[in-house]
């Protein structure tokens, strides 16, 4: 579903992403972990085309990641949710439905609103929502087109406990339905029980990518994923 070969990204003299390669198969959930400044968000932004890659090749569903065909296949949930100030929650869904050509969007939107407790906020303007609410709307917007591949950049930030639980549940359901997910997070336990593999980055490089069990074996660490992460990144 996603193939990244020799991706690199340079900002002025700083190499933020250093020649990384990885791939995600259909139906796979991969947790992207790493300390602050490791290059997680930059990697995601390069893959989805918000940042121009310095080198490498990125294919989504076999298409070049900048093509419209590729964009039809994925959705992105940014770390900071930015909504249109003067569109209501419902308007945002309508906008996304048009952009992605979602036919029966109203029923799907209603279902998502129900899950994320947004049913009574449908007519609220983007500018009047709290950060957590905006994040919920951002997730709903990403889920509405039912894409094959989802990029979540720190999706749990700002969410209330119930929404965090809902999002974890959504991850499981998406996985069961064969969707592919790449999610960057600092909340390690949020991916521990759901990720098929984890990818750990540090200083722009991938320093570990495998199943949690294999990584534990490789690093001879029987503790939690958090222990493993701290050992691999040398932050213990």
């Amino acid at each position: 579903m996603l193939s990244v070969k020799n991706l690199s990204k340079k900002f002025a003299k700083e190499l933020a992403v250093d020649d990384i390669s990885f791939s995600l198969e259909a139906g796979e959930v991969v947790g992207l972990l790493g300390p602050n400044g490791a290059g997680k968000s930059t990697t995601i932004k390069c893959v989805i085309g918000l940042l121009r890659k310095t080198g490498g090749e990125v294919l989504i569903g076999g298409y070049d990641h900048l093509s419209i065909e590729a964009k039809r296949k994925f959705a992105y949930i940014p770390e900071t949710p930015n909504l249109y100030d003067l569109l209501t929650v419902k308007d945002h869904m309508q906008f996304i439905a048009q952009a992605y050509g979602v036919a029966d969007w109203k029923d799907k939107a209603a279902e998502l609103f129900e899950r994320y407790d947004l049913a009574d906020k449908q007519d609220k303007l983007g500018r009047d929502l709290s950060k957590g609410m905006k994040q919920k709307v951002s997730i709903c917007c990403a889920l509405l087109p039912d894409p094959d591949l989802l990029f979540f950049d720190e999706p749990m930030i700002g969410l209330d406990p119930k929404a965090i639980r809902t999002t974890k549940q959504v991850f499981r359901e998406l996985k069961e339905r064969g969707k592919t997910i790449l999610t960057s997070t600092h909340l390690i336990d949020s991916v521990e029980h759901i990720a098929d593999r984890v990818m750990i980055m540090k200083k722009g490089q991938i320093i570990g990518i495998d199943t949690i069990a294999n990584l534990k074996q490789q690093f001879a660490n029987e503790g939690s994923l958090e222990d493993l992460f701290l050992e691999i990144t040398g932050d213990e």
Partner: peptide, 15 residues
């Protein structure tokens, strides 16, 4: 553009 355009429009299947 606005940041909402960046997050919603730039990643959408639009030219």
């Amino acid at each position: 553009f606005s940041l909402a355009d960046v997050n919603m429009l730039f990643t959408a299947p639009t030219s």
